[in-house]
């Protein structure tokens, strides 16, 4: 099975960059003071007042829905050595009002997937390949290139694979002294990296922690820890 892919998967990220942030946290203190990840007037980023569990009136993750706010933040980020850009989103607000006996904390959950894929040395196409009986070796879905084996005497051959990893020319094997084949590699293994963020709230009541997570696709999961 071959699936053509964009090697820099998802959201146009290169592997060396931070993932795109689609939501920001907002925390409402018991006295009514609010804290927000980005200053609404200047776009400057703030550190969370407390990374640990503590009492709040409410905690929330809010999607970026204002284009000028996004631009303001990204202009500031562009000046930083490790910029972390934000983008508009249609994700729902995740808002938890806390009871008197509850504490909460907010955080991002980062996910980095790394996977290998094949890149065609002839035409540059990137593709994923799964071994199947019908297709026991990778073939470029665009130009049909594959890795081939070469005998010094007989040219391109389909080798005999020995258990020890040796590949022998099938014609030489029949006619005389066995001869190894060399690989002509046209398909190269590369690694793609995909980064994404989920947005988490944990609420602690006694010994019970409830975790709310909203991912970049807007799927909310709730777990008891």
């Amino acid at each position: 099975m071959r699936t053509t892919i964009n090697p820099v998967m998802d959201e146009g990220l290169s592997t060396m960059e931070a993932p795109i942030t689609l939501m920001y946290w907002a925390l409402e203190d018991l006295d009514g003071t609010t804290y927000v990840l980005y200053d609404l007037a200047t776009g400057e980023q703030h550190k969370v007042p407390d990374p640990n569990f503590r009492r709040w009136k409410s905690v929330a993750w809010i999607p970026f829905t204002d284009a000028s706010f996004v631009d303001l933040i990204n202009e500031r980020q562009a000046q930083l050595p490790n910029p972390s850009y934000v983008d508009l989103s249609t994700l729902p607000v995740l808002h938890v009002k806390l009871r008197d006996d509850e504490e909460a904390r907010v955080f991002f959950r980062g996910k980095i997937e790394y996977s290998d894929f094949y890149e065609c040395g002839e035409c540059g196409t990137a593709f994923l390949w799964m071994r199947e009986d019908t297709e026991p070796y990778p073939v470029c879905p665009k130009c049909g290139a594959c890795n081939t084996w070469f005998c010094d005497i007989h040219g391109e051959v389909t080798p005999i694979f020995l258990q020890n990893g040796e590949r022998r020319c099938p014609i030489c094997e029949k006619q005389g002294p066995p001869r190894g084949c060399s690989l002509i590699r046209r398909l190269f293994l590369r690694t793609a990296v995909r980064k994404e963020l989920a947005y988490c709230i944990q609420v602690k009541r006694g010994d019970i922690i409830t975790e709310y997570v909203i991912n970049k696709d807007g799927i909310v999961t709730v777990n008891s820890l």
Binding site: F108, R109, L128, R131, F161, Q163, C200
Partner: peptide, 18 residues
């Protein structure tokens, strides 16, 4: 085991950040 080219597989790291 089967000698030869290997199918593509994805591995994942998770981390929490604030």
């Amino acid at each position: 085991a089967t000698q030869g080219d290997k199918s593509n597989i994805t591995f994942t790291f998770l981390y929490d950040e604030i």
